[in-house]
Design a protein around this nucleic acid. Structure first.
Lengths: 217, 217
DNA sequence: TCGATGCATCTTGTATGCATCATGTGTCCG
DNA sequence: CGGACACATGATGCATACAAGATGCATCGA
């Protein structure tokens, strides 16, 4: 029935719409309807409807009864909320790692180092795509080390939201990537010696820099 | 057209099913179908389907394509995950409050004291229902003080899951409520003097006691 | 007897139709 | 000229219909 793709219609509607929101083709403040998306994707309204519900749960859409779906605009307060939650979750990961047996910490630190190598290479090669992916991987790896599905899922949703904020933001400037990499390295260094306070402080620095880059102050 | 209730069919399906999962009428491991629920509530499958999707997102159901919906059984690891997340969020609230201006802290402390009064009265009256509601109110008030919608929503979902764990647990014992109340009071006391470390430690005690009550160890 | 196959049945996935509700507009009345 | 009302329009909410996948069981063959 879908014919082309092996994915269900619901999944296609979800991914397509989400992608269009995240990459900015559907700007915040836009009002879209089930019918529009259904027509575009050549499917009925039913799967689109389910995709919309999911996107609303993720905070990307806001549904208005009988009126349409509003693409939620990124507000400064949302930026704050996302960053606060990120600091909480990632900071927890750092603390927990530093309190964990040496061996466990070493494993994660090793994984993080590997990611940093990739990120360094991406920076040298000027591959923004790979750099962003490595950045994502870095933070995900950190949060995964907590082994808590609930926190991991929350974090994934936070990353998605942040993605959208980044592109709304000012140009990152050519020095941003280097700064990001340096901040990552600083965090891993603190982690390497098991200094939780230091690691958290550096995480805070990293997220503050992110905030500045996003809200411009 | 449902006529009777002012709620939408989707909302009724969601609340009813959720309630039946949380109160144990639908035990973990059960396989339910959209049709069953739709018949029971005298509505079509469509709104039930949407309710199921929502419940899956909350971690209460797990949907299997073309097979049905599994009521997720509470696992020990889920208990750990929920409690870890709760400690993280509530602990953050305590820390943030202690770092906030005296006035802000006093406002929240006042609200918490008010809730404790209610809880004390409920305990004296032997009103379990009211006691549980006050307990819920206590923790929600704490988390609300963070003013972060993302964390608040996460917390709400955590509380729901915990609800279900409690009833699967051993009898609470007549002394449990008193212990809970005492632990709450201890937390608020530490908060009153702005001692974040102390408050967090007491929160940890409280949640540990909860874990013992739930998993029995 | 045991395993493979085909079918009946059940459930979901999607499409479609209709009723309802919200909104904007044009007209009529003051 | 201004405001209220009736209606056209468009969207969702829900019901229903149908197709397709998954499962269990009976049946058949070795």
């Amino acid at each position: 029935m879908t014919g082309i793709s092996g994915l269900s219609a619901k999944e296609r509607a979800y991914r397509d719409t989400k992608a269009r929101i995240l990459d900015g083709s559907l700007p915040g403040g836009d009002l879209i309807t089930e019918g529009q998306v259904a027509d575009t994707l050549a499917m009925s309204r039913t799967p689109v409807r389910e995709a919309f519900l999911r996107l609303e749960a993720e905070g990307l859409l806001r549904l208005f009864p009988k009126r349409g779906a509003l693409v939620v605009a990124v507000s400064p307060s949302e930026v704050e909320a996302v960053l606060e939650a990120r600091e909480l979750v990632e900071g927890h990961a750092l603390t927990k790692l530093c309190a964990a047996p040496e061996a466990d910490r070493a494993v994660v630190a090793g994984a993080l180092h590997a990611v940093l190598d990739i990120q360094r290479a991406a920076l040298a090669a000027g591959d923004e795509q790979a750099f962003a992916e490595a950045d994502r991987r870095f933070h995900i790896t950190l949060v995964e080390s907590v082994h808590n599905p609930i926190l991991l899922e929350l974090y994934a949703s936070l990353r998605d939201r942040q993605l959208r904020m980044n592109l709304g933001s000012l140009e990152k400037g050519p020095t941003r990537p280097q700064a990001i990499l340096a901040q990552h390295e600083a965090i891993v260094d603190a982690l390497g010696i098991g200094d939780a306070e230091q690691a958290r402080a550096r995480l805070r620095v990293h997220l503050d820099a992110t905030r500045v880059s996003v809200v411009g102050r």
